[in-house]
Simulated scan of single mutants.
Amino acid sequence: MSEEAPVKWWTAKRKTAVVRDIFKGKTTVAEVARQHDLAVSDVESWMDEAQKNMENGFKSRPKDLREQYESELRETREALGEAHLQIYALKKWRRLLDDEENS
């Protein structure tokens, strides 16, 4: 068995080749993880992402990639806004408690 140099950066093209080999039955998730010193969950997440994106390819009108990213960006901004409000409220609550203790 030949020793391959460790992969420092997994490009989309390389991930695609690995996932394609798994789908074709040429290798398994566990084998890929072991060969490349990856967590099984990392390889499984690549497979999940590939399956999610394949569904879009089979639709009669595939969702525009930009639209997908904009939707994800909107959701991320909303989550960030909620987190910001929670942090603000917790800081304010903490200041009120500190003021109450110092009085």
Rank of each mutant, 00 (worst) to 15 (best):
1 M>I: 07
2 S>K: 15
2 S>D: 15
4 E>N: 15
13 K>R: 14
15 K>V: 04
15 K>C: 12
15 K>I: 07
20 R>E: 13
20 R>G: 04
20 R>Y: 12
21 D>V: 09
23 F>C: 00
24 K>A: 14
24 K>S: 01
25 G>A: 07
25 G>M: 08
26 K>H: 14
27 T>Q: 04
32 V>E: 08
36 H>S: 04
36 H>F: 02
37 D>E: 08
39 A>W: 03
39 A>Y: 04
40 V>D: 13
41 S>P: 03
41 S>V: 05
41 S>G: 08
43 V>Q: 00
44 E>M: 06
45 S>K: 10
49 E>G: 13
50 A>I: 01
50 A>D: 00
51 Q>L: 09
54 M>K: 12
55 E>H: 11
58 F>E: 04
61 R>S: 12
62 P>R: 05
64 D>C: 14
64 D>L: 04
66 R>T: 06
67 E>A: 09
68 Q>M: 09
68 Q>T: 10
71 S>V: 06
72 E>N: 02
74 R>E: 00
75 E>G: 06
76 T>K: 06
77 R>E: 14
78 E>N: 00
79 A>L: 10
83 A>L: 12
84 H>P: 03
84 H>T: 01
88 Y>Q: 00
89 A>V: 00
90 L>V: 01
90 L>M: 13
91 K>Q: 13
91 K>M: 08
92 K>D: 12
93 W>G: 05
96 L>K: 12
97 L>V: 09
97 L>K: 14
97 L>F: 09
98 D>L: 12
101 E>H: 12
103 S>I: 08
